[in-house]
Design a protein around this nucleic acid. Structure first.
Length: 687
DNA sequence: TTTGTTACCCTTTTT
DNA sequence: GGGTAACAAA
């Protein structure tokens, strides 16, 4: 071939091999199963995008192609790239890959398939989806109804119960085994838990609701039926899965049942970046991939890193090189650089904040936009102090991970009203909505909802019910709203309609209504992007927007702003400069995850993922003292921290070591001498 | 039965 | 600091 077609231009030989392997014919027949082992920064997404584009250019039908990605965001990115590549080759006729491609997370695709086959699967087509806290609330309701609430000894909390149920389903292990291995302190409740989970499943079926696990489980069960499996699997010629190392056994089984012979299946992954074990993801899915299908599997590797400089890679390789299990890949980069990543020792966490802010601003002076920089951390609250400082200094930022905007009470209230209108049987939504009114608590709410369920006439029943006196005033209004929404066919304006009822209630429900109203504005803006209510509710449950609107205000889309992200949410992304907070034992690894060897190993990979996000500059921050809010009522609130165990002395030659102890910068002279902890003293006033 | 108060426990990562 | 559970009061 004299010249490369445009959609393959710029790929190196290994990437090109992966992008085009066994794609023959017009339209191309499904290729035998392909496993692409691709290290961090080796152009994994890019290669996948080129493979998809190549399939399309060769005439594959986009409507029969399934792309499974880890997040909605990743799906968007992939589609964007595919479209651009196709456009270069096909021009205007490239057309509408976006509309016809099946792309999204396992959960989102499962929801879509389940809706399509709902009737034949015995699911109500209008089923609503419970997000995690909805699911926990329902679990609590059920627990009370089952009489498991009043037990003399302490029963596991609802979130714990949900986590246990989830792990059992996702991992395929028995309840007994999950309890023994992960929740030994709950083992005594095994029988009660089993009863609770059964009742929970019954309740979900009765109400026409599915939680996250149900989406996967229902699809997997449907695929166990050979006729349905053939029909559903037959919808797709090509199935491509990104981040395969972070799928769980249930997801693995879905893939295997969708395409038992493996033809047309391509998966991409990196065992060194597996960081979702806590969600029952297992690298076994990658390791066992070659055995999963009836057709022999091809394995290709990508080992050349295009992202980071060689010194950054050497440091990251050193960290992952100390892992228990060997990861045979060794990344290399052609991007030489004289500067090693920096390991910065700091006095305490406040000094860390000061240092990061200063470094970010300095880097900006040198021409790095804020958008080219990111601060990464193990848990969402690690960035709290930094956020305060950024707000104070007027530095714009977006934060990914941690508390979702959807978990804010007022947002959940508005959504619950819409959910109830969509599915009057949804108890969680119903309980929430009715308790908005004064004088209605759990008891009354339940009674009213039971009356609605018994009458079987939908929400119209509400109008005839008699609420307690205190609720009388608003009752008619609420009933009218719900009845109107239940019958509404036009989506536009529904949020505004809800807000006419809800906004006036806000000041009574919360003492800080202003920022909450702003959140609702934002919710309305999101809602406007959807064509109907069902879509809106489904998508929102599966892909919650990650707004931190109560902080600095949502940055304008084009504004140059700094990224703050949990390491988990930073997966697959990259920045020119990356700062990793709290590289100390107790944070990385999290002290919640130091029990079992596998957990610690996963934490090591978390640090590896963080480090390999950096292209040009990388700083690992090691504050030596921590200011903790805390348990010991009196006594020292400063906790000493040790450098992360993943950064032992013998690999420190990979770093430039910096000691950024205060002294200079702050008032010289005042830094020495006896210390008095004014901050703790001021806080102690309220003790 | 609701609402307010207090004591106590736990504190992660996400679809 | 934040959520939850148990208890007290309206």
């Amino acid at each position: 071939m004299s010249s490369e077609p445009p959609h393959l231009r710029g790929l190196d030989p290994a990437q090109r091999e992966a992008a085009t392997w066994a794609i023959d014919g017009r339209p191309p027949a499904p290729a035998p199963p392909l496993l692409i082992l691709a290290g961090a920064g080796t152009g994994k997404t890019r290669t996948l995008a080129h493979r998809v584009a190549h399939l399309l250019v060769q005439g594959a039908d986009p409507g029969r192609m399934l792309l499974l990605t880890f997040t909605r965001r990743a799906a968007e990115e992939l589609i964007r790239r595919v479209e651009r590549l196709c456009f270069e080759v096909l021009g205007a006729e490239a057309g509408s890959a976006r509309e016809s491609l099946w792309a999204g997370t396992f959960h989102a695709v499962a929801a879509r398939l389940l809706r399509r086959f709902a009737e034949r699967l015995g699911l109500p087509p209008g089923f609503t989806i419970l997000d995690r806290s909805d699911a926990a609330d329902l679990l609590d309701l059920v627990r009370e109804e089952e009489g498991l609430a009043r037990i003399d000894r302490r029963f596991p909390k609802k979130d714990t119960c949900l986590a246990i149920a989830s792990l059992v389903l996702a991992s395929g292990r028995s309840l007994e085994e999950v309890l023994r291995r992960q929740f030994p302190w709950c083992a005594e409740w095994q029988d009660e838990l089993k009863a609770l989970f059964r009742a929970y499943a019954r309740a979900k079926a009765a109400q026409g609701v599915l939680d996250y696990d149900d989406l996967l489980l229902a699809l997997e069960r449907a695929l166990a039926e050979p006729a349905l499996a053939a029909e559903i699997g037959g919808l797709f010629d090509h199935v491509l899965v990104d981040e395969y190392q972070d799928t769980n056994p249930l997801q693995g089984r879905i893939l295997a049942r969708l395409k038992p012979d493996g033809r047309g299946v391509t998966v991409v992954g990196d065992d060194a970046q597996a960081i979702y074990g806590f969600r029952a993801a297992t690298v076994r899915n990658i390791l066992d991939f070659p055995k999963a299908f009836t057709t022999p599997v091809e394995i290709l590797k990508l080992e050349r890193n295009y992202r980071s400089t060689q010194p950054i890679l050497e440091a990251a390789n050193a960290v992952i090189g100390l892992a228990r299990e060997g990861f045979p890949k060794r990344l290399w980069s052609a991007r030489a650089s004289s500067s090693k990543p920096r390991l910065v020792a700091l006095e305490d966490d406040q000094a860390q904040v000061d240092h990061v802010v200063r470094s970010v601003l300095e880097a900006r002076e040198q021409g790095l936009r804020l958008a080219d920089q990111a601060v990464l951390f193990r848990t969402a609250h690690h960035s709290a102090a930094l956020e305060v400082e950024l707000v104070r200094r007027g530095i714009p930022f977006v934060k990914y991970g941690g508390l979702k905007f959807l978990e804010a009470a007022h947002v959940k209230d508005v959504l619950a009203i819409l959910k109830l209108a969509e599915n009057p049987a949804d108890r969680v939504a119903g309980m929430r909505v009715l308790q908005l009114l004064p004088g209605i608590g759990p008891g009354t709410a339940r009674r009213l909802l039971e009356a609605v369920a018994e009458a079987g006439r939908g929400l119209a029943t509400l109008a005839g019910l008699r609420p307690p006196t205190a609720a009388r005033l608003l009752w008619g209004e609420l009933a009218a709203l719900l009845i109107e929404l239940e019958g509404a066919t036009i989506w536009a304006g529904q949020i505004e309609r809800v807000r006419r009822f809800y906004d006036p209630l806000l000041p009574d429900l919360h003492d800080d209504p202003a920022p909450r109203l702003a959140d609702l504005d934002q919710l309305a803006a999101v809602a406007a992007r959807f064509s109907d209510r069902r879509r809106f509710l489904t998508e929102l449950a599966l892909d919650p927007p990650s707004a931190a609107s109560d902080e600095a205000g949502v940055p304008l889309r084009d504004e140059d702003c700094l990224t703050l992200s949990t390491i988990h949410s930073a997966k697959g992304l990259e920045w020119k400069a990356v700062y990793v907070l709290n590289c100390v034992d107790g944070c990385i690894p999290s002290d919640m995850a130091t029990g079992m060897v596998e957990e610690v190993e996963e934490e090591r990979r978390v640090l590896y993922v963080a480090m390999t996000r950096a292209k040009d500059r990388l700083e690992l921050l090691v504050p030596e003292r921590f200011y903790t809010f805390g348990q010991p009522k009196f006594g020292d609130r400063h906790v000493r921290a040790a450098r992360s165990r993943f950064l032992p002395d013998r690999i420190l030659d990979r770093f430039e070591r910096v000691s950024a102890h205060r002294a200079r910068g702050s008032d010289p002279g005042a830094a020495d001498g006896p210390r008095f902890d004014l901050r703790a003293a001021l806080e102690a006033v309220w003790d």
